[in-house]
Design a protein around this nucleic acid. Structure first.
Lengths: 344, 344
DNA sequence: ATTAGCACTCGAGCCCAAAGAGTGCTAACA
DNA sequence: TGTTAGCACTCTTTGGGCTCGAGTGCTAAT
């Protein structure tokens, strides 16, 4: 069966109506609301064809049609007209990025919040992949009043990790300084994922005095760097989905929320889109259980022309695709520019 | 009407049965399950009295009784037998605190998770009130590779705040060092809430060269300290409430989740219990909208004998009070001890 | 003071009928 | 050959009416 122009129009009409109304769309309402110049009967025939082609589904015999996952896919790929954001909306987004943002983390959190707010779906922001970043600085800072010290690591992506620890008794401030300098000299500029345990072991071999201190510091460093590897993830608007009629069923909600609670699952789903730029996964294209009736949209954000991390969106397959795409594009763009400024 | 012993027994029986079963309790089942030595009819009379006294409620004429907020209150204050945790449970909690905890924040997060896990309600952990902490250390650290610097502030509660910023062009490393030393000398040991803008202004007056740098740093410091003031809050198990039968109603769930999403409201509710030690707010005793059908339990945790912060729990008024109290006591205790160790 | 007995109330569950939306098919039409 | 009007059919939704069961409150007897 061929996909002629009228079929396309009918499909687009059904998808659009269904996205707005959330209820199966019948032939009559299409004929009334769209001027296709044909009768409901003709549209019924087209709908039957579209169903046979796998683009539409019928919840039950006497209901209208709803788009299948493939139907949405075809709509997104071939039919959808891009919806521009209004000037006011664009400006609003930009204004949100104009306020003081002090740290990378805060920007991501704010971004997730903004996405969730503007789309009323659930938003996710993933930090940059730290494994490919390099260490800008490692330093041990004695905290004078408490007999403790602070280990600080700064990476090229602007993330700062720190850890307080208690200094062994027989350690002088000088020892700390020496070790700090030594560590920094050895590790500065190194790519994070290259700093294996073995490299740290080598360091350990070379520093012969202050075994206890050294031991402790290296262990902490190892942990801190491992932590950096696992990207941080910011989740906002998880409760938005409750407003979606497709989640009237509590069981489904529970499954979805259970999924959202598992950070690693979340990370896997959102980080695993291989495409560059914008990616849309509709319904069963998502392989993870619990989100097979959802659409996942992700988009890269960049720093200095290179992909830094991802922004994501989770909503029902019945999603306002064209609006969402505009929003994601605009926000990713603004974030990238803000970060650019941030890093200069 | 007086509260004689039999009334107490009947009330206790009803509360207990209702907590377990979640369904209105009838006179027959009380007579059967508890050996009160009287017939259902007598119990009915007592129940009618208890209802008149405001301790019980009837959902509708032909249903059993359920406890009112006052009923729960009376039960908690006068009737409830403390339920000891099993040895295994106690041990489990202790073991959870034996694993490596590197930072204050992590301990709180883990604590919230533990509470939520052991009670199946929603848990909250509030960081210590930073306003009364003093500054242990302020330091500016140049980050060599990027032309930036890191401002670090460590408080006596072990919280570390940091902020990356770009160094003005004409600034040397020496300038940074000088300013860092000067700041630290001036502010070290000062109580956070005493460091107003005016003190910072005074500093500003004294440092005459490097205006731009100084300006920037002081502004950042001000922000960072303000941030410290607003306690961090850790929320876990927000989705647990979905399993509670009283939240079958989606509308109610939405309201509650909306409340949980607003950090400041949350903070207000959980931080505002004036009592020392354990506090239980039942139903309408909670003044905040959306949680008038919930019970909020909070408990202090201590460091060096002084109240440091609060742990909290949110569940339906139909709560396993005696278990919850044991859990909260045990966890607050373990956390306090862990923190003690952490601070030495 | 307690209790047995009994009438009464109310909600849950079930069935059934009617209404309404929408379809698929057929035959007529351009 | 594509389009359309007409119509029978299907399926869900809604609401009434019914019974059943749990539980109460009252009364009168103990």
């Amino acid at each position: 069966m061929r996909m002629d122009e009228r079929k396309q129009k009918v499909l687009a009409a059904i998808v659009q109506d269904y996205i707005i109304g959330g209820e199966p769309v019948g032939s009559r309402s299409i004929a009334r609301r769209y001027n296709l110049g044909v009768s409901p009967a003709t549209i019924r025939n087209e709908m039957a064809d579209l169903e046979e082609m796998g683009l539409l589904e019928q919840p039950h015999t006497s209901a209208g049609r709803i788009p299948s996952d493939y139907g949405y896919r075809y709509y997104v790929d071939c039919l959808m007209a891009p919806e521009e954001l209004t000037a006011a909306e664009k400006e609003y987004i930009q204004r949100r990025y104009k306020q003081k943002m002090h740290e990378f983390e805060q920007m991501l959190e704010e971004t997730a919040r903004l996405i969730s707010e503007m789309t009323a779906y659930t938003a996710v922001a993933l930090g940059p992949n730290q494994k490919k970043a390099y260490l800008e600085q490692v330093q041990i800072l004695p905290v004078q009043l408490s007999g403790k010290a602070l280990l600080i690591a700064v990476t090229s992506t602007g993330l700062v990790e720190h850890r307080l620890f208690t200094i062994p008794d027989n350690t002088t401030e000088e020892d700390l300084q020496r070790l700090s300098k030594y560590l920094n000299d050895s590790l500065q500029g190194k790519v994070v994922e290259d700093i294996h345990r073995s490299i740290l072991q080598d360091l350990y071999q070379e520093v012969i005095d202050q075994r206890e201190l050294c031991n402790q510091v290296l262990e902490i460093l190892r942990q801190v760097l491992a932590l950096e590897g696992s990207k941080k993830i910011y989740l906002e608007g998880a409760f938005n989905i409750l407003s979606q009629p497709e989640f009237k069923d509590l069981e489904r909600v529970k499954k979805l929320l259970a999924f959202l609670e598992k950070e690693d699952a979340l990370r896997r789903v959102f980080a695993s889109t291989p495409e560059k730029g914008l990616s849309i996964r509709i319904g069963q294209e998502n392989k993870h259980e619990g989100i097979d009736r959802c659409t996942v949209v992700t988009i890269d954000y960049n720093v200095e022309g290179k992909v830094a991390g991802k922004l994501g969106l989770l909503g029902p397959t019945r999603m306002q695709y064209s609006r969402v795409i505009s929003v994601m594009n605009c926000i990713a763009d603004c974030l990238s520019r803000s970060l650019q400024q941030f890093y200069r």
